[in-house]
Design a protein around this nucleic acid. Structure first.
Length: 549
RNA sequence: GCGCCAGUAGCUCAGCUGGAUAGAGCACCGGACUUCUAAUCCGACGGUCGCAGGUUCGAAUCCUGCCUGGCGCGCCA
């Protein structure tokens, strides 16, 4: 029996109790959940439904609880229902009912955890979107890990997800980048407002290698702009690919300009009555939608602002059929929330159509001291730097195990340690241990068979492990709904702990000279199920599940 | 000044869509390997959940005010 099924039983038993007691069913919620209590004395699962509805229905909680409990006791698979405190329902399952989940998990394999909590949603997920004027830095790395994980989590919840990287290949930053490349190629110092990292020299040299006559071209700056951006972007894409982050679409801002999408968007906004002209510029009245101040779309010199492209891009996403747009920004860009939401509303979309997730800053510590991050200063810490220092798995895990609302002090020394200071090892080790057991089972010629006796999985550590396994689909659903992939990492740690504790107390394989017992066979199923879930959880985070460590 | 985020054990952080005695890892102390990986497990220690009010049967969780720290408030991108 899964927690979801049990929750439905609780609700229907409550409904029946209401009918018997002649209470108003309007007080009942549409759905309910059961919790996994920390204290084993509180049963396998606990429901607080009585506490939630008794007052609303104007009835005595204990009496209501009594009715629900007697109804629940009738349910196949429920061994016992206790009433505790002000009306908690503490439910204990039959070992067989709890244990059958292992077989289901093994049968489902990589599909276990999939749920349909977001079925029907068509979500555009935009993240990283770093300008191609330099390598992906630490902040972008956070989103490369978290955004990618969120995309997987949402897909595992039934959503149709398009992940997208917005490539700002137009505008003043690119001009500065081109100027910097040109200056360095000529052996001149970096311009005042230019980019100064060592990578600029490398790119400039590579442009010269590919276009030997670049400096003598009719418009050298244009050659460096085009070739430089191309090289930079290729490097970014390769870096992200090595990092395991995939984007369905790399969207070029330039394309919006070339296709006249900015004009289209402004015209549309104008028709909707949200455009005005002042001081020789064209404005969007974002204050009508809660923004601090109105925003310029077209400057008095006739050029577009970045914001105008944002409007066009927003409209383009909507026209491509996405009904939910999620945008992941760094905390240093949170000032954009008001104007971005104004775009959404100006186009007439419902609040909530555009969802902006703000991720707090990532600080890098080396030797206990902050490492400066600045593309321009050239002391930039890049995605590649971090990966080189601590590896892809540790980087992805370190960045996804914390809430995006919290800033991260990423201590390179700590995450470099290959010891148990490092949470990713705790989880991976559990998987490697399982792989070892299953390898040994194969070597011993032990077969788990086609079926097992689930009622034999009655040891407390087995029951804890089963409950943890059963939780996985709900964890994915909540991570998707709340846009919080860190829940997957925390869950994986919880599950790994349950396995380690099980492993300490429960022998799986037969001792030398003995043949496998029925309990051993059942445990083999449990172990296989755990491996599936650990692998699936790590997979959602883009972290490998090693066979050996 | 205004806005966003954070403040929970010595440290790093979960928990926050209100529920039972507030959890984990690390650190420190004490235990467990001649049999499936000790990168593990068990125990001990450790908290006025920033402060003050409020809402309620019940608040770390919701509301208000305040304090501290981070980030942001351009016809920059």
């Amino acid at each position: 029996m899964t927690p979801e099924t049990l929750a439905e039983k609780v609700l229907s038993a409550t409904r029946a109790a209401f009918a018997e007691l002649g209470l108003d069913a309007a007080a009942l919620p549409a759905e309910t959940t059961v919790e996994r209590p920390r204290n084993p004395e509180h049963g396998d699962y606990a429901s607080t439904i009585v506490l939630q509805v008794a007052k609303k229905a104007g009835t005595d909680p204990r009496a209501l609880a009594q009715r629900i409990a007697s109804g629940l006791t009738e349910v196949d698979g429920v061994a016992k229902v206790d009433i505790a405190g002000p009306g908690f329902l503490n439910i204990t399952l039959d070992a067989a009912a709890a244990g059958e989940i292992a077989g289901r998990i093994v049968a489902a394999g990589t599909a276990y955890g999939y749920n349909e909590s977001m079925k029907g949603a068509h979500v555009n997920l935009e993240f990283v979107s770093a300008n191609p004027t330099g390598p992906v830095h630490a902040g972008g790395t956070r989103w490369a890990a978290v955004g990618d994980a969120l995309a997987r989590v949402m897909r595992s919840s039934g959503a149709k997800v398009g992940s997208e990287y917005y490539f700002n290949d137009a505008g003043a930053q690119i001009d500065r980048f081109a100027n910097s490349l040109l200056a360095r190629a000529k052996g001149e110092p970096t311009p005042e407002d230019g980019y100064g990292g060592a990578y600029v020299d490398e790119i400039a040299a590579e442009v010269l290698r590919r276009h030997p006559g670049a400096l003598d071209a009719a418009d050298p700056r244009e050659v460096f702009r085009t070739a430089g951006v191309e090289l930079m972007f290729a490097e970014i894409k390769a870096t992200l690919a090595d990092f395991g982050t995939h984007f369905d679409v790399y969207f070029n801002e330039k394309e919006l300009h070339d296709r006249g999408k900015l004009d289209d968007a402004v015209e549309r906004l104008s028709e909707l009555g949200h455009i005005f002209e002042a001081d020789g510029a064209v404005w969007l009245r974002t204050t009508a939608f809660g923004d601090d101040k109105d925003r310029v779309l077209k400057k008095s010199d006739g050029s577009w602002t970045y914001f105008a492209a944002d409007c066009a891009y927003y409209l383009d996403k909507r026209e491509r059929g996405f009904d939910k747009l999620v945008l992941m920004l760094g905390a240093d860009h949170h000032g954009y929330v008001g104007r971005m939401q104004a775009i959404s509303q100006a186009f007439g979309d419902e609040p909530g159509t555009l969802e902006i997730l703000i991720g707090q800053m990532v600080n890098l510590l080396r030797d206990g001291r902050p490492v400066r991050m600045s593309k321009r200063a050239g002391t930039v810490v890049t995605l590649n730097d971090i990966v080189e220092a601590i590896g892809v798995d540790a980087t992805r895990y370190a960045l996804t195990r914390y809430s995006a609302d919290s800033s991260i002090d990423l201590d390179i020394d700590l995450w470099t340690k290959h010891g148990n200071d490092n949470p990713v090892y705790y989880v991976q080790y559990a998987h490697a241990r399982i792989a070892g057991v299953l390898r040994n089972a194969g070597d011993l010629g032990v077969d788990s068979g086609d079926a097992y006796d689930a009622s034999l999985l009655s040891h407390p550590k087995e029951k804890e492990l089963l409950k943890a396994l059963a939780e996985f689909p709900a964890v994915i659903a909540s991570a998707a709904e709340l846009r919080e992939p860190h829940r997957i990492a925390r869950y994986a740690e919880d599950l790994a702990g349950a396995y380690h504790r099980f492993y300490t107390d429960c022998r799986v394989l037969p001792y030398p000279g003995e043949s496998i017992s029925e309990t051993g066979r059942a445990r083999l199923w449990l172990v296989s199920a755990t491996r599936v879930v650990l692998a699936n959880a790590l997979g959602l985070l883009g972290v490998s599940a090693p066979e050996r460590m």
